[in-house]
């Protein structure tokens, strides 16, 4: 057991899987020699050589398209996109090819690959460095979309993603890359894709969050506890496919539902979750299932970003509104 940060957990999972499976290759812009702009791949080229961990030219369609070819021909590619905002030139490859390969070849060809990318705001970044694009992937049939919120889950989920038979989009909340450390087992373990985690058992309201928002909800819970409000907090962990059972069971118990996501609201995961609850837990509801999300605007630069990023105060406010409904 070592006490490590989320970014170190990513590094550990990559190293362990490369060690175990010689077909795992890791690549992307600045990934090889430097070890990644966030150091996610630090030390890997040194240990496994330039054939298995390498720098690519700046070309996201090239990176992601080549990952598909590698996966078809016997490798397990783990591609890094430097920031999720720069995935867009490769989005064509993801949507038009990676997500469809299994279906269109009726299982003859598959795409067991992982595309990792830091995402999300709150780091006072430049343009295109703060967005949360999970909806763009979750909307696409054939993809799995995973977002860890702790070092423990990051390692277990990334290990699962690398071993998964289907393409996994692995989004890393960069705001909490180094925000806190956690004890993580040294040996390999799996956190299953498609399973949400009940972080806190509660009775009054179910709150679902993921990525950096999980901690913000936890901070809000400190205030709410003092006011006698008991929150059941669920970390979704996999955005697609959604763990319907865990969430529906929880809402049936608490009768109230709030989803908190950093991504813009329109047509997002919040809407998906609420539709699911309306279908499966409608008769248990004591208040309208509600979403607290980013506004439907371009994420502002630093001097306006505080309005966009959801803080514990706003979470507590929304929860109280639903309790008092």
């Amino acid at each position: 057991m070592a006490t490590i940060s989320l970014i170190q957990a990513v590094n550990q999972a990559l190293e362990q899987q490369m060690e175990k499976d010689p077909t795992v290759v890791v690549f992307g812009e600045d990934v090889g020699f430097e070890g990644g702009v966030f150091r996610a791949t630090a030390g890997l080229q040194k240990k496994f050589g330039e054939m298995r961990c390498f720098d690519t030219p700046i070309a996201e369609a090239g990176i992601i398209g080549a990952a598909l070819g590698m996966a078809i021909n016997g490798l397990k590619p783990v591609a890094e996109i430097q920031f999720s905002g720069f995935m867009l030139p490769g989005y064509n490859q993801i949507v038009a090819h990676i997500a469809r390969m299994r279906n269109r070849s009726r299982g003859r060809y598959t795409a067991p690959l992982v595309i990792r990318m830091p995402y999300g705001g709150g780091i006072r970044a430049l343009e295109h460095h703060s967005e949360s694009q999970e909806t763009l992937f979750a909307h696409i049939p054939g993809l799995k979309v995973v977002i860890p919120s702790t070092p423990y889950d990051a390692k277990g989920l990334l290990t699962a993603a690398i071993q998964d038979p289907d393409p996994v989009i692995f989004m890393e909340p960069k705001r909490i890359y180094r925000a806190f450390k956690q004890e993580v087992p040294d040996e390999e373990y799996i956190v299953p894709i498609g399973k949400a985690k009940i972080v806190n058992n509660g009775t009054d309201i179910t709150v679902v969050a993921w990525g950096a928002m999980v901690r913000e909800v936890q901070k809000a819970m400190k205030t709410l506890e003092g006011e006698g409000i008991s929150v059941e907090l669920i970390d979704l962990r996999t955005i697609s496919p959604i763990d319907q059972e865990t969430i529906v069971e929880s809402v049936k118990k608490t009768g109230r539902f709030l989803v908190v996501h950093e991504a813009v609201r329109a047509f997002g995961p919040g809407a998906e979750l609420i539709a699911m609850i309306n279908k499966h837990a409608f008769l248990s509801l004591e208040a309208p299932p509600t979403r607290l999300t980013g506004f439907d605007i371009i994420v502002p630069l630093d001097k306006g970003e505080h309005h966009y990023i959801i803080d514990p105060k706003r979470i507590a406010y929304e929860v109280k509104k639903l309790i008092q409904y």
Binding site: I297, P300, K303, G304, H307
Partner: peptide, 14 residues
């Protein structure tokens, strides 16, 4: 000394 962006501005130029 330019301060923060006015709230209105993050909405009105969309």
């Amino acid at each position: 000394n330019s301060g923060l962006v006015p709230l209105e501005d993050i909405f009105k130029y969309q």
